[in-house]
Design a binder for these strands. Structure first.
Lengths: 227, 227
DNA sequence: GACGAGTTGTGAATGATATCACAGTGTGAA
DNA sequence: TTCACACTGTGATATCATTCACAACTCGTC
């Protein structure tokens, strides 16, 4: 079983590398790197991890760089794609087209990867039939049918907490095997379903805590420096 | 230094406990627990972690339960609050009032905790002066002033990727010490600033990966069972 | 062609996190 | 009042993730 954090870092590397390889070549102040090749420490600083971590991750997916030149950007992007993406592409559906759902569509819609959000669902009849951010919206009654039609196996849950559990059951019943859950609720699903929670409240409280706590550590460091 | 994951779990426990303690007593099928007391394994299953993890966490924050009855719900909520929350409350500001910003306000606005989102900012003049989800919106030029006025030390960055770095610099300059970043960019900030990334693209790709990978593991398990 | 500077690749060491397993204990039942 | 059970608290252990540190290598330079 591959570690979850490895997969997330690879996804991040790919995005960073994509920016490097793009036509304008990422004007940002990257020390070395001409856009063709990248060193582990450059990729590391762009991704906010250590250089050793980058090298270890690259090794894990079986890619190889060249001493003195670094990693071939296009080649590494390709290898990450082979590792992360489904060979024939993968389809996802989004349930809940409130502010959050729309924001997610706007974010992901632009990205060009092996993964597409092929349909949206909402209880609000006013939204049905409309196309939002390039994604067709259906009523909840069409859920199973549309999922089957596209062979989607990923579901995004962007509904209020009270409905999230119910929605997730419907998704799983329709064949979904991975859930990205934005609702502030822990979903109870069969163990063969993978759930990733994006819990804004929890993240926010965590930031608030460390905003204070780092201040404490700063003072401790100052004290130590004085001594 | 307290581990980041401990803080997140505590935040989660608190929310789950709050649901347990609420008037209607969480109709959901919790085996034991009458709403007054809760066992480590019940809290664990509600939070999606192991019972040993719960006991360890409770120990870490110095709370104590009673054998045979479990933890006092109200007492534990209180202790978690002492640990997580700033004594006099804490203020945060939100930059970017697009779909995502509004969604965040809707989520967090309802919650009653030591943390308040006291102001929003956006470049769009049409939004300035309005009150969205109970939060007053200002133009970017008022950033430093409003932050100073409220003594806010937490900032939420919900702007497009291209502007995120610039916004984060302004926030830090105005005194913010913790950032919750929704933009698909790694922020470069001084090391005394705590950054938490909520990276929807990365999370989604991770879910997509494990939706497939767990399927593989399932097949492997079936093979093994047949043998 | 030989050299040296600056990379990568990776075994080993460290550190962080979660689990195990069981002694200790308060509680309700008899 | 006594007892036994089911739970907590926690040292020890296992697992997972990251970093260290250095040999091996490659490329530009002399």
């Amino acid at each position: 079983m591959f570690a979850a954090c490895l997969v997330k870092r690879l996804s991040l590397y790919r995005r960073v590398l994509g920016a490097l390889a793009s036509p304008e070549g990422w004007a940002g102040g990257l020390g070395s790197s001409d856009g063709e090749y990248v060193f582990s420490h450059d990729l590391a600083s762009l991704a906010g991890v250590s250089a050793a971590q980058v090298r270890r991750d690259v090794m894990t997916i079986g890619y190889t760089g060249s001493p003195r030149r670094g990693y071939d950007v296009a080649g590494l992007i390709g290898r990450i794609g082979e590792f992360l993406d489904a060979p024939g592409g993968q389809s996802a559906v989004l349930v809940g087209l409130g502010h959050l759902g729309k924001a997610v569509l706007a974010y992901v819609g632009g990205r060009r990867t092996g993964l597409r959000i092929v349909a949206g669902f909402d209880v609000d009849p006013a939204k049905c039939g409309r196309v939002i951010h390039g994604c067709r919206c259906h009523g909840m009654e069409a859920l199973a049918e549309v999922i089957a039609e596209h062979g989607a196996n990923v579901g995004l849950v962007a509904v209020p907490g009270a409905e999230a559990q119910n929605v997730s059951i419907q998704l799983v019943r329709a064949g979904v095997r991975g859930l990205l859950n934005f609702a502030p609720v822990r979903l109870q699903v069969p163990e063969y379903v993978f759930v990733e929670d994006v819990d804004i409240t929890v993240s926010l409280e965590s930031v608030a805590f460390f905003a204070r706590h780092d201040a404490v550590r700063r003072q401790a460091m100052i004290k130590e420096a004085v001594r």
